[in-house]
Nucleic acid binder design. Structure first.
Length: 231
DNA sequence: GACCAGGCACATC
DNA sequence: GATGTGCATGGT
């Protein structure tokens, strides 16, 4: 039976709950066994992760790498240096990542935020907790829930689960929550059913991306999907 | 040439 | 509150 989680109505029996707890973790184990550690996020510093989180919005990581490569080549990958680069130059440098005009503005907004609120020092940002940081990040132009949570988890090592389009595509296909479940409800679903662990949240999201690339593109291959029939 | 990728803001209804 | 649209490059 296909089960829709309607979180608002809270029709969620203890039996179903129990089953999900084990299944959500079981899926993690299956994926980890199959693919191993994904070594996310591919960035040398928290600031590089922040930049990458903005640049990867609706964009293949391959293209982001080119853009970040340009910034590295010019030795601009720090808050202070990048803050002194003009918008025009910034958009040229990040051009390979697509939407370069939009993203240049978004990066500038992020740089302003970091400079004004944290004196441009990421170690100051790290001292704050999720409850403080998440709303702050969300208030920055161009930072939505996924970008904010990616920064928190992968950039700042805060225990928060990142939900992306793949997550919202994979789980409904296997009979978990409904495709239209809001972001925060999906996030809550994972965090309730997993140990609170930066390591697990980190790998889980990365593993789902990995899985999606093999089996859950727009044209899915559910028949051979390693988590088929889990529920 | 079509389709897709580790979203988000904004307009309109 | 739901739905539609613009933003753009580079790989398959």
């Amino acid at each position: 039976m296909r089960q829709n989680y309607n979180f608002e109505r809270q029709r969620y029996s203890n039996k179903q709950k129990k089953r999900d707890e084990s299944n959500v973790f079981k899926i993690y184990q299956i994926l980890y066994k199959r693919y191993g550690s994904q070594h996310w996020w591919p960035g040398d510093t928290p600031f590089e992760v922040i930049v990458g989180a903005v640049l990867t919005q609706n964009t293949a990581w391959q293209n982001v790498e080119k853009a970040i490569g340009n910034l590295k080549r010019e030795n601009l990958l720090s808050v202070k240096k990048l803050a002194n680069v003009s918008l025009a130059k910034l958009s040229t440098l990040i051009r390979p990542s697509g939407y370069y005009n939009v993203k240049a503005k978004r990066l500038k907004a992020m740089l302003n935020f970091l400079t004004n609120e944290y004196d441009g020092d990421i170690s100051n940002v790290k001292k704050k907790n999720i409850r403080t940081l998440r709303p702050q990040l969300l208030s920055v132009d161009g930072v939505g829930e996924e970008t904010a949570d990616s920064i928190l988890l992968y950039g700042l090592s805060k225990p928060i689960f990142v939900v992306d389009t793949y997550t919202k595509r994979i789980f409904p296909r296997h009979g978990f929550f409904d495709v239209n479940t809001p972001y925060l409800n999906v996030q809550k679903f994972f965090m309730k059913n997993l140990p609170k662990s930066v390591k697990i949240y980190n790998e889980y999201h990365a593993l789902l991306v990995r899985l999606a690339k093999d089996y859950c593109r727009t044209k899915p291959n559910c028949r051979e999907c390693p988590i088929k029939g889990i529920k």
